[in-house]
Design a protein around this nucleic acid. Structure first.
Lengths: 209, 209
DNA sequence: TGCATTTTGTTGCAACTGCAACATATCTAC
DNA sequence: GTAGATATGTTGCAGTTGCAACAAAATGCA
């Protein structure tokens, strides 16, 4: 997976910060960044720290949707959780550098190399994000839980090139990703097991179709 | 809405084509581009012509999902319709220029101005696409037809800044966008009308909430 | 204008799913 | 290891939805 500063030296990285008139912000453990992100339309890149995207359910339980570390992108466009039930929670003191993409501007002859590299990296990253979103839409437009699961499995199979899938998150998080009720999904998984389509051992799922 | 060649002269546009080693392809009326797009990982921009994204339903009917004209972006990432039931149909002879984003490279001093403008335009467009996808995911994760409709209406309301919404597509297409059965959606719309939440006149919907 | 096609509205019914409640299993921290 | 917390599995039930079939309205086109 491409990272924003791949193939860019530490020195040139800070030159980029200057050239883009970036703002570097620090956030403390426990802060919720969701409202702050709403107000910023710029692209944030995490320089250091650790942030979780959390969904708070009505019954008081909460669910980790995503975890972000150094070099991960954090902007309202890339996470987009308008719902008040979502939280962007700082788990460790975190520094984020914000780029205003409107500010792409003239660069001198010397900066060209790493500037182009940076732009290329960002393109590839955003392109990947588009891909992820598309995959999820592809899944969410399936009308039954069974079909969403099978679509998810198919995509995972294609990606891994194997019939053995390792779930990158919990079954709770999977239900959330598929946009279905957890217990109903659990029931459907049981049916799929019974019918011999899959075998489940922990987070390891073997597809037999 | 930003277009790829905004603020770039016709002359510089063709210089960009050269600098990126683009390929320009022509397609004839009636061709289905979906398979061709699968094989290309590059960014296509329509130079001239008219293309429809079509969904073919099981019962033989088909539905126009989207229509693309000059300066619209056409790549597998931006449409993403893996399903064989989707078709990318050329309605008029269409020319597409394909950019390989991997080929972003050194530009001479003279090209910088329009090169930067082009990159900025593309960023803004892809960012918009991310937004669109996020909105749709936001809607698709709602668990009832009613809630998907209300979410859709809310977003439309925010965008237009008015309680009067004009549907940009047919109700059939809306059902497809929301990922629900058309007749079930029609039923739910009737309930919403009865309960006084909305008024419908053709594609014009008045929100009273 | 008038005919054919497409879209929209309506409804019964069977199937699916969310929800709640609970049991069991797994994980985590001490 | 143990206790508490968290995650997973199971099930009944009521509400929602997809599907099919059809009527009515709107649209396109010769």
């Amino acid at each position: 997976m491409v990272k924003p500063f791949d193939k860019i030296s530490e020195k040139n990285k800070y030159k980029l910060f200057q050239a883009f008139h970036t703002h570097i912000m620090s956030y403390n453990k426990g802060e919720d960044l969701s409202k702050m992100l709403m107000d910023r339309n710029s692209l944030g890149i995490i320089i250091s720290g650790y942030v979780q995207i959390i969904k708070k359910n009505l019954n008081g339980t909460s669910l980790i949707i995503d975890e972000l570390y150094e070099d991960d992108i954090l902007s309202i466009k890339t996470i987009y959780v308008q719902d008040s039930e979502y939280e962007v929670l700082v788990k460790e003191e975190t520094k984020i550098v914000f780029f205003d993409l409107e500010q792409i501007q003239e660069f001198g002859e010397n900066e060209k190399g790493y500037y182009n590299q940076f732009i290329k990296n960002l393109f590839l990253i955003i392109n990947d994000k588009l891909n992820e979103k598309n995959e999820r839409i592809q899944i969410l437009t399936k009308k039954t839980i069974r079909n969403r699961l099978l679509e998810y499995f198919s995509i995972a199979k294609t990606k891994s090139g194997s019939n053995n899938i390792y779930l990158p998150f919990s079954f709770m998080a999977l239900a959330d990703y598929l946009g279905v009720d957890r217990s109903a999904m659990s029931r459907e998984l049981s049916y799929l097991k019974e019918e011999g389509f899959i075998e489940i051992k922990g987070k390891r799922i073997k597809l037999t179709f």
